[in-house]
Design a protein around this nucleic acid. Sequence first.
DNA 1: ACATGTCAGTTCGGTGACCGAACCGACCCT
DNA 2: AGGGTCGGTTCGGTCACCGAACTGACATGT
Lengths: 175, 175
Amino acid sequence: MALGKDYATQECSIARALEVVGERWTLLVVRDALYGVRRYNDFLVHLGIPRAVLATRLQMLTEEGILEKRRYQESPPRDEYVVTDRGIALWPTLRALGLWGREHYDGTVLRSFQHADCGTEIGPYGECSACGLVVPVEDVLMLPGPGLDPDPANPVSRALLKPKRLLQPVVVDQV
Amino acid sequence: MALGKDYATQECSIARALEVVGERWTLLVVRDALYGVRRYNDFLVHLGIPRAVLATRLQMLTEEGILEKRRYQESPPRDEYVVTDRGIALWPTLRALGLWGREHYDGTVLRSFQHADCGTEIGPYGECSACGLVVPVEDVLMLPGPGLDPDPANPVSRALLKPKRLLQPVVVDQV
DNA sequence: ACATGTCAGTTCGGTGACCGAACCGACCCT
DNA sequence: AGGGTCGGTTCGGTCACCGAACTGACATGT
């Protein structure tokens, strides 16, 4: 994890988790992967992250089994990074964190997440209160909220304005 | 947040949250606060964190309204840091993160969390399946699991072996 | 009176993670 | 041949974090 070493003295699952996803940018990369971002350049544009840091994070997340590197064309060779089950399992954490940030800092809805089957807003543990179950991530519908810039500069942000289910690859229209 | 600046280009509640609690050690300090740790020295001993970093984090968390500094004796003047509602609201995030770490890395239960009223293990939505409700943090009973060292070196870890409710101040026995 | 100990920090020198910008190689198109 | 894209790597500078030492206010023991 970030800086120096690990949380050596800790005997704690939270500390163990933070050793893997606690570094700067890491959770945002996973978030984007859940949103359907898959390509190096799309992560780069959407996150505004230094190139070297992105390369390091993608490699580390791949080694940890959170992303999977997959060749999608041969010439020129191009790989995409697809989120695995282990990465998908981080959704409740990201959802809880997002709700906390919205509640205590944003004060407005930037994105809303609904159960695709019934339209109910997803709760802090990724559950649908109406159906009383944890909604599978692929059944979560992401919609832009009123607080979101309706005309962002970069094409990935623009592609993420369309309502879409999580995990569905994002389609970036070429200019 | 960690390093340099913020996540400037992001319009996202998750990024906003990480600007506040995304730095190294920060979430572990909040975790300890929820466990009932309140004093500088207890945080220091339990976390094994550099003193300067702890001082910075406590000040920042206080400014952000996640902890509250409170004088508990006058001579010598001593303050304790008590978690506020805003900090308590991070419990679902920490719970989700801990479950992920346990599931994917630890493979054993280090601490278990039960509904104090009925002894049922808290579910993945923070709910008590027996009572059918989301358990308020003060009604969560924390118990040591089989994976936890039964005789830790430092007195704070030892005090946290006793079953106790979250938020209840931890009692460290002097030697 | 004086030494010793505790608590809550601050100070300091060294290391290394992160930053932005430039560069690189493989491939494509014209 | 020239220019553009994609997915990186390299590089110098800055800043966060690291551990250890120091400080000051107070309490305790003799």
